[in-house]
């Protein structure tokens, strides 16, 4: 299973919410393949179904049509084997647990335990070792989100799903967190064995800085309007945001998002 190149295959995904008064179509016929180890951003304006897409990929939501394959199996299997790590916009930590306790939570949930991660090294990774015995309410927003990232990594998933993980942070923290996440992602393994990341965002800068590839979704219901490969060298640092290729990508994406919205 590990040799298959496409880690995530989405085929003809459509979704319609039917719990409202009128059926609300949010996704229309999306097909995306994500190769193993790729950092893919999904960008689009609010309301285009990005978050819905992510919830479908991780099996929290059953799509109205289409299939999701993760390593050739359904998302339920991936859940069972603890192959998925999720980070939401809100850290959603358990307030009665310490930082270390929150990171340990996934390890206390029964699942296929074939990997060995310990909370201590994860806390090191997100640079929170000194705060291991603090409670979430004693931390800043950025620190809480780092705890959430460590928690998602605790089961050592092969697929990391992030739903606007920095969306609730202030601009300064947010800018720093991008590079921090890239650092965490790169330091986890050699390029070939890196985690596959699906990163939902509505920030153009964020998408370019982080990704190997950007899938642009737009419209209601959301459709794939473009698929852009980002060929900027890694490791990336803040300087990249002033480089000419970066600005070209930004212009290009701005055009795609504006054009599709009109």
């Amino acid at each position: 299973m590990a040799n298959e190149i496409q880690h995530v295959r989405l085929r003809g995904l459509s979704h319609v919410f039917t719990d409202g008064r009128e059926p609300l179509p949010v996704l229309d016929d999306l097909s995306i393949d994500v190769p193993r180890g790729q950092f893919t951003s999904i960008i689009g304006p609010s309301g285009c179904g990005k978050s819905t897409l992510l919830r479908i990929v991780c099996g929290l939501l059953e799509p109205s049509a289409g299939t999701v394959l993760i390593d050739g199996a359904g998302p339920q299997d991936a859940q069972r084997s603890h192959d998925i790590g999720i980070v939401f916009q809100e850290p959603a930590l358990l307030p009665w647990r310490t930082v270390a306790g929150n990171v340990r939570l996934p390890l206390e949930i029964d699942g296929e335990r074939r990997r060995n991660t310990d909370a201590e090294s994860l806390l090191d990774l997100v640079d929170l070792s000194e705060f291991r015995d603090y409670f979430p309410h004693q931390l800043s927003g950025g620190m809480r989100q780092r705890v959430a990232i460590a928690r998602a990594l605790a089961v050592d998933p092969t697929l990391l799903l992030m739903d606007e993980p920095f969306g609730a942070l202030d601009e300064i923290t947010r800018a720093a967190m991008r590079y921090e996440l890239l650092h965490i992602w790169a330091s986890q393994a050699e390029a070939a064995a890196r985690k596959t990341v699906l990163f939902v965002t509505h920030s153009i800068t964020e998408a370019i800085v982080m990704s190997d590839r950007i899938v642009v979704i737009n419209g209601r219901p959301g459709r794939v309007v473009a698929d852009v490969a980002v060929e900027l060298p890694r490791p990336r640092t803040q300087e990249i945001e002033r480089s000419a290729p970066f600005l070209d990508y930004a212009d290009h994406l701005r055009g795609l998002l504006a054009g599709a919205a009109a």
Partner: peptide
Amino acid sequence: VDPGALEFMRSLRASPWSIFWKLRAP
């Protein structure tokens, strides 16, 4: 319960039992 925490636990296939003791009860 915090919907994010609940979805996080569900994404790991936590049993209703462990969702109860680790999330709902506290």
